[in-house]
Design a protein around this nucleic acid. Structure first.
Lengths: 227, 227
DNA sequence: CCAAAAGTGTTAGGAGTACACCCATGG
DNA sequence: CCATGGGTGTACTCCTAACACTTTTGG
């Protein structure tokens, strides 16, 4: 696509996080067209007339994955004049969190291929998408401690060990099991469901749900998740 | 100015905070042209070709105030399709903090008038600028606790009481003097200078400077300013 | 000597962290 | 009965918050 000189185009790009086998992954698409044909890139596209930024991000997200009701948040806008060789393109980056059981990858039009990558093992990306991804990871790590981010990455029902693994995978360090459980107990944001998960040859784990109402009350009081 | 259909324009708007008489103020300009002629608005303007977003924000800031070396941070991008009656205008909002002794308002071309407003007593604003301002205030309050924001609003040398007033004016509540001073002492980010400020008929106050290097070390360790 | 802000210490309660063993289950 | 992750309590340290009086100065 050609862009006239002095004309500004606006895109949205989305960093879509999810957990695969207890590790944080990002969805990338392989570009089927120039520039950067064959390179991996963040899913995204131009904002349409009459479409809000958030709506554009939601649309792109839906086109790549079949999910709805996802956590979606605006990350940052990137507008260096030379970030796109086609001309002046400003991008508004979003990041999305998808529960690990809710992912269905769809065939896409622009992208020849779409794949999940472990954030610890990323390829070289098109445009300035490497920078965008690095920034979103930093933001995610900061958000662990005062938002519901970890719960967005899990299915509705989860075990305490699964929850702890989410915290550990985002923070990048191990946490003490007893301290973790005591803190969750103290915060009182988990509701046990009368069910267990039996997985192979070991003691079944109690399942829990996140109590969003309780969390909102804590947030109003300034009580958070300090790890 | 007319904008063709389906064409996107990008502006930057800046929320410029400063302290006047121990109260948090924002710089607003009265619009000299339609739309919203005569209404107060955030300073801002179109991003020029070949100019990065941050550079555009810096330029606008310089056009309104004579300051340099200010704290400038991207806030959020607003892009609802109907936020500007002239057509599709996406704005990237920034916020800036200016030390209270460094402000020189300049005559501007687009704006008939520029004035500081107490954030507790704001007029109705043009476009969606009321929303942008509300959001920047929320962000500022969140940032108090883990950034150098309060120091950016003070001159190089300041008294402990002045610093405490900055925290109080942003947080919107009173702090205990002894606890405040002990915490600053413990954090070890203030350096006394061998000078005092004598102001009228009372005991002079010791002047201090902020030690940015020390703060960086604390930030790396995750030690912050919890109030 | 008076008014006004500067400056200073102690205590009690709560949260964070470090640490090791028994429990329940399926095969 | 064994392998595997599930589940639990205690002790110490440190930070937070509540709280009131003396000091220094200019007029």
């Amino acid at each position: 696509m050609r862009i006239a000189r002095d004309d500004v185009k606006v895109t949205v790009d989305i960093v879509i996080f999810s957990l695969r086998r207890h590790h944080l992954h990002v969805l990338l698409v392989r570009r089927g067209i120039e520039p950067f044909r064959g390179r991996w890139a963040l899913p995204g596209g131009f904002v349409r007339p009459g479409e809000s930024l958030e709506r554009a991000a939601m649309r792109e997200l839906g086109e790549e994955t079949g999910v709805k009701d996802v956590y979606l948040e605006q990350l940052y806008s990137f507008g260096d004049p030379d970030r796109d060789p086609r001309g002046r393109v400003i991008t508004v980056a979003y990041f999305a969190l998808i529960a690990s059981d809710a992912v269905v990858l769809r065939a896409t039009t622009d992208a020849a291929d779409a794949r999940w990558f472990d954030v610890a093992d990323l390829p070289s990306l098109a445009f300035d998408h490497g920078r965008i991804l690095a920034y979103s990871l930093e933001r995610l790590r900061n958000k662990v401690e005062y938002t519901t981010v970890p719960f967005q990455l899990l299915p509705e029902e989860f075990t305490l060990t699964e929850l702890q693994r989410v915290y550990e995978s985002i923070l990048g360090r191990r946490l003490d099991k007893r301290n973790f459980r005591r803190k969750m107990e103290l915060l009182d944001v988990l509701r046990p469901v009368p069910r267990v998960r039996t997985e192979g040859l070991r003691r079944p784990a109690r399942l829990h749900r996140f109590d969003g109402k309780r969390f909102e009350k804590l947030k109003d009081k300034g009580i958070l998740f300090p790890f």
